[in-house]
Every structure is written in structure tokens, then in C-alpha cells.
Design a protein around this nucleic acid. Structure first.
Lengths: 158, 158
DNA sequence: TATTGTTATACTCTATAACTATA
DNA sequence: TATAGTTATAGAGTATAACAATA
């Protein structure tokens, strides 16, 4: 069940308006992933993002972050290794663990996705008035700050 | 290759800032889908959204909108019908076609997702200052308008 | 003959359960 | 014995190719 953090109600209209207005942004955001799908499936791409973010991690950590069980993550890694995107080695410290890192090709793919995403966003931003761009950026930043605070809180409570 | 619509360059910093700031919004947006995953897989949910949006369509139309081939869409429908979420009947007008419509259960699921999405957004919006909320909304609406115009253009050019 | 769907087959993603190897 | 991964098996999602039914 969701925790209600702010008892005071917002006008439902505002929430609905934001939900409606946010959809195109979310769609544009997803375009880069659609393009990258030619090189790696969505689950594979998510795994690469997680590994890239950590630099190096073991299989259970990866499975945790992906929200899948280790078995599924192991199979996913099989294919990423076979595709030359991921490196999987036995850990020196603990020979039960594996060390997962990105290969150069995997890093390159992530860069491409990020670049494509910015291109897709820039394509729309170009067509906006400077004032609207400013409003969007400041609004998104405020949203991000609150969402970040809430995520932190959840770490303590969870 | 992406079409460059606005030769004049934006400051790269602005695009990067938007890309960074937009991520939490995209993540919050996706929460509702993660919850709904217990009732229907992501592809199934996407299919339900398309059918719900059209009210009624045939298999090729569904496949087109999902970006999959008819064969895949047919199998997807098999499972949605089996799950009691979708109705598939032979068309009266053209007995080659099928008519896909949502069952009550499918409609209910879509409502739930939409509601959960608004809840997740409202949760963050509550924590924002009124001015920031206004900026976010107006910025998103401006973005949506430009994105919409570009999508229209693409229909003519494609 | 062209259009609309479905079926056969194969590969990816995922979970459950059973297993191996290391600590 | 507990922990870290892998493998066997099975169902979902997808594409390619072959097929059936209708127009």
C-alpha cells in the first residue's frame, strides 16, 4: 500500500494535467532505448546500465538491482558475455563470487544511448521558446529534488 | 539517421541538464507499470493500452502500433484472451478480420494503472512549491505541444 | 491473386527447483 | 552449514517462414 506523505490534497486537475502533459516527454525519453534495441534487448540494456553505474559488481547485486532472481541474471550475463558487451571473471578475493564489468563495446553502447536520448530531447527543446525551456528545466529539477528526498527516506524506512 | 529540424544549436549544457533532471520523472512515471506487472506483463499492458485507446481494432492495426509483426501480436492476444482481459471476435463486415476489444477486467486494469500513476506523481507534486509545480506543468505542456507538432509532421513525411 | 490471421519453430527473458563450488 | 552461481526445465514474448481462410 502506498504511503500518504502529504495529507493536504492537491487539486486533482493539476495532477491529471501533469500526467497528461508528461506523457510525450516520457515517450521521447524512451526513443533512444528503442533505437538501441537493435544491439541489445531491453533487459540486456538495463543490465549494462546497472553495471556501468557500479563499475563493478557481483551477480547477486546485479540481480537485486534488476529486480530478478540470480538465475535469470546469470542467463542474462551469458548472453551479454557472448555478445562481447560484458566481462565476467571469478573474484580474486572470494572465489565464489564473479566480478562483472563492462567491455569497451558495452561502454560504447551506453554512450550511444545517452547521446541518442539527448538528441531526441534536443530535437524538441529546439522548438520551444526560451521561457518554456527554462520553466521545464526548473520544474523538472524541483521534481527531481523532491523525488530524491523521498527515495532517501525510503532507504531508511525500508 | 535522425533529421535535424533546428540547425541553430542549443547550449549542450541545457540539453544535458534536462536529460539529467528528467530521469526521476520518467522513473516515477514507470512505477505504476511495475505495480501492474503482477496482473499483466509489460507487452500485455502495452497491448491493452492500444486497444483501450482505439476502442476496437484488428490484429494488423494492433501489431503496427506495438511495433511487432502480426504473428507476435496474435500470440499476445491468445494470452490476453486466456487471461480474460481481451475479447477477440471475427468481424461481421469482413470475415478475414478479427475485432479486438477490452473486456471489463481489462478496462479495470487500465484504470488502476492510470490511478496508480497519478498517485505516484501526486506524491512528489505534493512536496513541491506551488511555483515549481506551475513551472513544471507549463514546461511539460510546451514540450508536449512541440512534440505533438513534430509527430504530425512525421506523419506527412513518412 | 491479395489480404488477414494463425501455426511451426527457434531464440531471449524469466521463475522454480536442483545442483556445484567455495567459505 | 551457509553463501554465490550455474544448470534443468518451463512459460511468455518475439521473429521468420509456411500455412489456411476470405475477399
Amino acid at each position: 500500500m502506498p504511503i500518504v506523505r502529504h495529507p493536504a490534497n492537491l487539486p486533482a486537475d493539476l495532477v491529471i494535467a501533469v500526467a497528461v502533459a508528461a506523457r510525450p516527454l516520457v515517450m521521447v525519453w524512451g526513443r533512444a532505448d528503442a533505437i538501441a534495441q537493435a544491439q541489445a534487448s531491453p533487459p540486456q540494456l538495463r543490465a549494462l546500465v546497472v553495471v556501468g553505474h557500479h563499475g563493478s559488481l557481483n551477480l547477486n547485486q546485479l540481480a537485486d538491482e534488476l529486480g530478478v532472481i540470480p538465475s535469470s541474471a546469470s542467463r542474462l550475463c551469458d548472453r551479454l558475455v557472448a555478445a562481447g558487451l560484458l566481462d565476467r571473471k571469478v573474484s580474486e578475493q572470494n572465489r565464489r563470487e564473479v566480478v562483472l564489468t563492462l567491455r569497451a563495446e558495452g561502454q560504447r553502447l551506453l554512450k550511444t544511448v545517452e547521446h541518442d536520448r539527448r538528441d531526441a530531447l534536443a530535437d524538441v527543446l529546439h522548438g520551444m521558446r526560451p521561457g518554456a525551456r527554462k520553466a521545464l528545466l526548473s520544474g523538472l529539477e524541483a521534481f527531481a529534488e523532491v523525488a530524491g528526498q523521498m527515495a532517501e527516506q525510503d532507504q531508511w524506512t525500508a
